[in-house]
């Protein structure tokens, strides 16, 4: 580090690395902690079963796992297509 470095204001490459890592690691951790590995598969299989009876949109099924005061709730929400009247 020479005299010029004292006047330089750009952040060091190490602090850029640290900041990038802080963000990506937090993001990946929350994705990991967001639910067990079987959720995507469960969602796919449920979709297949439901589609035997009702023709729902693949995006219409939401499966999520929520933690509430010590117990876990598996939440399943299916938006059925609007029934045609007449």
């Amino acid at each position: 580090m020479g005299l010029l470095a004292l006047f330089r204001r750009t952040p060091s490459s190490a602090s850029v690395a640290k900041e990038r890592l802080r963000i990506i690691v937090a993001q990946e951790r929350s994705a990991r902690g967001g639910g067990p590995d079987y959720l995507p598969l469960l969602r796919r299989e449920l979709l297949e079963v439901i589609r035997k009876y009702v023709n729902v949109d693949p995006e219409a099924i939401q499966v999520s796992l929520e933690r509430e005061d010590g117990h876990e709730v598996l939440e399943l929400s299916v938006a059925l297509p609007e029934r045609k009247t007449g």
């Binding site: 580090m1 470095a5 060091s12 490459s13 190490a14 602090s15 690395a17 640290k18 890592l21």
Partner: peptide
């Protein structure tokens, strides 16, 4: 020290 590498603490 020259800011090119993350430190142990980082």
């Amino acid at each position: 020290a020259s800011g090119e590498m993350m430190s142990v603490d980082d």
